[in-house]
Write a protein that binds this DNA or RNA. Structure first.
Lengths: 138, 138
DNA sequence: GGTATATATCACCAAAGCGCGATATAGTAA
DNA sequence: TTACTATATCGCGCTTTGGTGATATATACC
């Protein structure tokens, strides 16, 4: 499949659009993405894999943590859709809400115990350890 | 589903991308689109319906003929993807070939008997009548 | 060492999507 | 009228896709 169509398919999913819009706020750890978008772990990993294979995100590993970001290189073939996306959905309430939640998650750290008002997330997410874990290298 | 995602899904198909790029050459009759892209009749109709419901094409009827075109209004919500598409795939060989075939189909008329070198199309397309039919109103 | 965490991958199922033939509808041609 | 054409829609089979639980691996914490 040609890259243009592959990227079109990668964007043709609401969850992946939310991921890309969230990553416009900067590089994020997978567990942060999971916390903000309230996704299952395998679901998030699969979607991120689709975005990565389409060249729409890059990733790096640091210990057990994986960080995803929008590509930084000047490869115009990978930037087209991302620039288009950046120019759109500024009025989307859900995406604005995601960005707001990201701010909260960033303050609390990565593994966040969901509040009592979010029972769906409480089922999916592990409890926050007393002290947040940190990768060795950082 | 929100319009942005719906349009993304509508574009996430190679055949529909080819249709939209073909319509950049101006309004076309369905039978012309079928001839150029060598699609089954019901397949083409279904794809055009998806594009229409997503607001990416408009249509009008004249007798039995149906004509599709890119939207002419200034509704920016419908133009975004189309402008993005117009700015891309200029180097796509298949789409360039489609445009070339369109020129040939335009010369011969709508219902074209496929040449002996295109047997797949010969199965799908009716033979060209001795005199090409024309809608009453035009 | 042992236990828990972060992530990727696999297997599975339900849902959606695509192509195609058949049918329905409406118009043209004679 | 009858025959043919253009298009839309429906029904079917097949493939793809999205979500989820289970598993594997590597790492962090103790």
């Amino acid at each position: 499949m040609d890259l243009f169509t592959q990227q079109a398919k990668a964007i043709a999913d609401r969850t992946r659009i939310r991921m890309l819009k969230l990553l416009e706020n900067g590089e994020l750890c997978v567990c942060e993405i999971i916390s903000v978008l309230k996704l299952g772990q395998s679901t998030a990993s699969k979607h991120l894999g689709i975005l990565k294979r389409a060249g729409l995100v890059e990733s790096r590993k640091n210990g057990t943590w994986a960080y995803y970001r929008l590509p930084e290189g000047a490869d115009s073939r990978c930037r087209g859709y991302l620039e288009f996306l950046a120019a759109n959905l500024s009025d989307d309430e859900q995406i604005a809400g995601d960005r707001k939640i990201l701010g909260q998650v960033k303050k609390k750290g990565c593994s966040v115990a969901p509040g009592p008002d979010d029972r769906a997330a409480a089922i999916r997410l592990p409890m926050r350890p007393v002290k947040a874990r940190q990768p060795k290298g950082a």
